[in-house]
Design a binder for these strands. Structure first.
Lengths: 226, 226
DNA sequence: ACGAGAATAATTGCATGCAATTTTTTCTGC
DNA sequence: GCAGAAAAAATTGCATGCAATTATTCTCGT
């Protein structure tokens, strides 16, 4: 009669490990020692090892036979590749969402948009990002396409783990993004699928470019530090 | 010093299980009993159970807590959703492949195309399908985008498991598909990304429609049989 | 007979133990 | 001192055992 809501230990371990990776508590490149992590999560090696296999399948970890697991970081190429795929997925999502979203879906997204706008005006970066992600995910969900949704979510999760992407935006970039979000909402409300698709793709390309630039900036800084 | 090439037992089990599912040896809805499968694969429950978790993460199995694993079939909606996503991925692949494929890539795809055409002329369905799949996969690979490639491969694998999709084509449908493949090759050779993207999307939509129709035909037959 | 409920069997989830591999430490010879 | 080998320690991969849950069979009352 304990408080174990996650149906199984494995589920709990998966949730906790994913959270730790996303939080950066387990940084990219960090090895995951089994016994140590077992103690930390208070489970035996069996469910932990099962979780490691699953996370490796999700490309969050790499399993080196006989040599343990390490948290996967993202190379510049990974980021580029992922943005390209997300662009394709979001473009499709935009088109389909305009066809299939219920009015309630759109109303909800609209509400999120305004709330995000408020955070933007107040310069509250973190809540802004949170809602930003939520809006994009919500548009994808509004397509009613579960496969699209899960593929998108998997990519979003992987990208989120590269935390350096999130913070540090130029004011300009932020302004542009917010403006684009206005266009996104307009197209959605008008149910103009072609336009929404196009705007989402452009929006994501912009984001991708910004991220890549920032990646370079980080690299340069590291080079100088070395 | 046995002949165990797969680095680890888990890998071997994964390979064999995937093959069994794809071959229909494990039909959709069939439960996977652990001990039984362990005997069949000559491994203990540990690596088998790890494999089950991974396959569940890949949506090939469903894990019902305390009640074992079952092979997942595809609902009509699943098929529709998956074709929509594949269409998006292939369209993107077409565009990127035209930008980035090497001449060697294109030459190889061209060779596969002609070989496939030969099978078409001889009415050899199975080899045709094999090459058909290989060509699409090869175009995706030619983008150099590993994320795109793995997402595409995962979807293709899941769809392949619904084997009823494969056989049973109308002659017309086959002719149309072969014709479209000609256009695909032309666009690729001309490195016309926009066109290739468009053709691939249309090609996949056609395939999707054919599959859905066939699905309905199967359903109707089953209804009559009942 | 038939169905509800108890007893039994089978199955899953997890912990632990052991062998094989890898990593670290300690030795040895130069 | 130090590079390299040998030994020790640690870590992973896998098998097995046990408790808990689920499925099956049996029993008994109507």
């Amino acid at each position: 009669m304990t408080v174990q809501d996650p149906t199984t230990l494995l589920d709990g371990v998966l949730l906790r490990l994913r959270a730790m990776i996303e939080a950066g508590e387990l940084a990219p490149g960090a090895p995951v020692r089994e016994r140590e992590m077992c103690e930390r999560l208070s489970v035996s090696r069996t469910p932990l090892r099962e979780a490691l296999k699953v996370l490796a399948a999700e490309r969050l970890l790499e399993l080196r036979p006989n040599r343990g697991a390490v948290v996967l970081g993202l190379t510049e190429r990974d980021v580029r590749d992922m943005f390209e795929v997300m662009e394709a997925l979001e473009a499709t999502a935009g088109r389909l969402a305009c066809e299939r979203a219920t009015d309630a879906d759109i109303a909800e997204i609209q509400a999120m948009h305004f709330q995000m706008h408020a955070h933007y005006l107040r310069g509250e970066l973190e809540p802004y990002f949170q809602l930003n992600q939520a809006i994009h995910a919500r548009i994808v969900a509004a397509t009613g396409n579960a496969v699209l949704q899960s593929n998108y979510a998997a990519l979003a999760a992987r990208i989120r783990n590269a935390r350096y992407l999130a913070n540090r935006w130029s004011r300009e970039r932020w302004d542009v993004a917010m403006h684009e979000h206005g266009l996104i909402l307009d197209a959605l409300v008008a149910r103009d699928g072609a336009k929404l698709s196009e705007i989402l793709a452009a929006h994501l390309r912009g984001k991708g470019v910004a991220v890549m630039e920032h990646l370079h900036a980080v690299d340069d800084a590291e080079v100088e530090a070395a």
